[in-house]
């Protein structure tokens, strides 16, 4: 069972995660009718920028984060922003949003100047996340765990970050045992998605380069 401390921490992170949303005026534009490659590109840029802002708000609420060295806070956010963005997109694409909305979003992504070689791994990842049928608890914990990764570049005090990440991994592991007794590999599968998520840092920087060239 969860200790009281673990229950409180999970509830706190779930609450912060429920506010981790892009403002409606940005999402509304995303769901408007088809637009040109340039408009799609600008919409995705605006969405990515807005995502970073809401990601910072979520991260500030992670217990202990604001006590970290200020430059380490920036290193963690810089190091995880892209991964958190793709994890969040995967959640949205695997959620039960009306199919014509997800088709519109998918169409917008496919027609925004992103090279096909980056579209394929992106939608493969969304599908592999979708297959896990993750709950809100799993998404919120996995997002927090991704942000609080001690091995990000430019981080000075790795132990302080590890002390914040460790309890979250324990809660997630216990949560998986409690909620997936029939699937002892579920926790390992979730961590496996984090590894897949890391590949998007590389994809994303190449995507930006190809965008600039186009």
């Amino acid at each position: 069972e969860f200790t009281q401390k673990q229950q409180d921490l999970l509830r706190h992170i779930l609450d912060a995660f429920s506010k981790y949303r892009i403002p409606q005026e940005v999402t509304k534009k995303l769901l408007q009718q088809r637009s040109s490659v340039e408009e799609n590109f600008l919409l995705l840029t605006e969405t990515a920028t807005s995502h970073v802002q809401v990601l910072v708000e979520f991260t500030k609420k992670l217990p202990g984060f604001q006590m970290l060295d200020h430059e380490d806070q920036i290193a963690l956010l810089k190091g995880s922003a892209v991964e958190a963005m793709f994890l969040r997109s995967a959640q949205i694409f695997s959620r039960k949003i009306p199919s014509q909305q997800s088709e519109l979003l998918e169409d917008r992504i496919r027609h925004s100047g992103i090279a096909e070689e980056y579209i394929v791994p992106m939608f493969n990842f969304y599908r592999s996340i979708g297959e896990l049928k993750m709950t809100q608890e799993e998404y919120s914990l996995l997002t927090a765990i991704t942000i609080l990764s001690p091995d990000r570049s430019f981080v000075k005090n790795r132990e302080a970050i590890d002390r914040l990440q460790e309890p979250l991994l324990e809660i997630l592991q216990k949560y998986c045992k409690l909620n997936h007794p029939d699937d002892p590999q579920h926790f390992a599968r979730l961590l496996g998605r984090l590894t897949e998520l890391r590949t998007f840092n590389h994809h994303h920087s190449n995507m930006l380069t190809s965008w600039r060239i186009n």
Binding site: A48, T49, V52, Q53, E57, L77, A81
Partner: peptide
């Protein structure tokens, strides 16, 4: 607007709670 800023600038501003788009 924020979208012209680099990632680090957006993060620094957001950490300080400033969102002057």
């Amino acid at each position: 607007p924020a979208s012209n800023l680099g990632l680090e600038d957006i993060i620094r501003k957001a950490l300080m709670g400033k969102y002057d788009d």
